[in-house]
Design a protein around this nucleic acid. Structure first.
Length: 462
RNA sequence: GGCGCGGUGGCCGAGUGGCUAGGCAGAGGACUGCAAAUCCUUGUACGCCGGUUCGAUUCCGGCCCGUGCCUCCA
């Protein structure tokens, strides 16, 4: 059995992954709050954990991947107020768009995608457990988690309770027993979404939903909990506090999730994406200009924990890399591939803490070898390339289509053929200036031509 | 201020105590009427200063720079 090594934020080290139950690997990753289009940072999280789950499925017979949809949140309420739309209308719409956009990135939909609003009962039950164990208290319609009741608090982020207060930007409400305490439940005004609870009509705090949904759908402790690096604190820290304390497991931070995996941030031209800078890159917009595979490869071209600077350069490089692979597949289109396993070198790279750049280097090695390959090797290379591509969510398109051969959209094939014939005649009569002129005409139409021993081929350049 | 992460050749980007990362771009060559595509050749880089070591880009300490979190955030 291949060994999977993962960097575990909980210990700060790369560790050998051993599931709690070899027969059933369980993974949870924090999903989006659905009030707007997903940006490329959301996309990176989805792609990274999709790839991790793909690796796990190669290694283990049964994997359950849960990723939630946060559909109750103050930002959603703000959005509803601004547009005058119903909250459900907004959340359902952006949930659907999220799934479409992620599918375009080659992300396989999680096995379970629980909505927060459908787990209010579980959240209330967990809050009651926390109150019963004296880790939480009700005050003025709120319920708060009492951080001092959990001495191990801060173990994931390496941040102490004092550090959290030292930031001095934590809202210190008068009803908090301790400045570090955080909200489990808060009251809703009549015009805000709310649910009946033992503490009055209200809605859950942000952190409790993941604790409740992960436990319901995966059981405790489950194997891997993931999310963006920014969620380490306070979100994941608070999840751990809630879940461990609700079950009297204050002694063991791993009693909730055993391995914690965090992906790094996407920056745009080196800057953080933010509304104020106006540099947010939405997946929805990007897929109108770039094939999803180009975006996916861009996201996989850096190691998942490293920051990724999203630039047009990076996109173009990913595109030319894919063009190269597709050209090989095109050249090998008459070679019969055999269904096979993911190439061991690719698998080994991914099993080393999801080293996707190394895996891509292995793809390049295959591509390099094709030039000197004999018939048997060519068949092997095509098979390996397709298997690796399938595993990485790449190379799923038809090479002919990808490269633009035989594309009819927006192209008058008859015109192209006529010009090519005219150019061929010019070439035969050594009228090369006329031939080159025709090539420029075609180029202006977005048509690139390639003279080969078998005649002239043309393609619609992307 | 506190807690992290990172600084690798023009660019992107792995990795390692001594043994080629890889890609892109560039240069030279082959092929071509010229191109395109492809192929061949070509680059000895690891922020700074100390320390450990036979030997450090890789380990340790300090410093500088960049960046993220500490408030909602993938």
């Amino acid at each position: 059995m291949t060994i999977l090594a993962l960097h575990n934020t909980l210990t700060g080290r790369k560790e050998t992954f051993v599931p709690a139950d070899l027969a059933h690997v369980r993974v949870y990753a924090c999903g989006p709050t659905v009030y707007n289009y997903a940006h490329i940072g959301n996309g990176r999280m989805a792609v990274v954990f999709d790839q991790l789950v793909r690796v796990l499925r190669q290694l283990y017979p049964c994997v359950t991947y849960v990723s939630n949809i946060t559909d109750v949140d103050d930002k959603i309420m703000d959005a509803a107020r601004q547009t005058g739309e119903n909250i459900d209308t907004i959340t359902r719409r952006y949930e659907a768009i999220y799934n479409e956009d992620m599918a375009a990135l080659g992300v396989v939909k999680p096995d379970i995608q629980p909505r927060a609003t459908e787990h209010i009962g579980e959240m209330i039950a967990q809050i009651e457990q926390l109150i019963a164990r004296k880790h939480a208290y009700a005050a003025q319609g709120h319920v708060l988690f009492h951080v001092p009741s959990f001495p191990a608090y801060g173990g994931l982020s390496g941040r102490s309770r004092d550090d959290q207060i030292a930031g001095a930007r934590v809202e210190v409400s008068p009803f908090k027993k301790d400045p570090a305490d955080f909200v489990l439940w808060k009251p809703s005004a009549p015009d805000q979404p709310g649910w009946a609870s033992p503490w009055g009509r209200g809605r859950p705090g942000w952190h409790i939903e993941c604790s409740a949904m992960a436990e319901k759908h995966l059981g405790l402790p489950f194997d891997i909990h993931g999310g963006g690096a920014d969620l380490k604190f306070p979100h994941h820290e608070n999840e751990i506090a809630q879940s461990c304390c609700a079950h009297g497991r204050e002694d063991d931070l791993a009693a909730f999730a055993r391995y914690w995996v965090h992906n790094g941030f996407v920056t745009v031209e080196g800057e953080k994406m933010s509304k104020s800078i106006g540099n947010i890159r939405l997946v929805h917009d990007l897929i109108a200009h770039y094939p999803g595979e180009v975006l996916r490869l861009t996201l996989l071209s850096a190691h998942y924990r490293a920051p990724l600077s999203f630039t047009s350069d990076a996109l173009n490089q990913a595109r030319s890399t894919l063009d190269r692979y597709y050209r090989i597949l095109f050249d090998l289109k008459d070679v019969e591939a055999v269904a096979g396993d993911v190439p061991p070198a690719v698998m080994a790279a991914l099993c080393d803490d999801l080293n996707t750049p190394q895996a891509i280097a292995e793809l390049n090695a295959l591509a390099r070898d094709v030039a000197s390959a004999d018939a048997v090797q060519r068949r092997h290379i095509k098979s390996a390339l397709l298997a690796a591509g399938n595993f990485l969510g790449l190379l799923q398109a038809d090479p002919t289509q990808w490269l633009g051969y035989g594309v009819q959209d927006g192209v008058d094939g008859a015109v192209v053929e006529r010009l090519l014939q005219e150019r061929q005649q010019a070439r035969q009569s050594k009228d090369f200036s006329r031939a080159d002129e025709i090539r420029r005409e075609l180029s202006a139409m977005g048509i690139e031509i390639e003279d080969t021993p078998q005649g002239t081929k043309w393609r619609k350049a992307s």
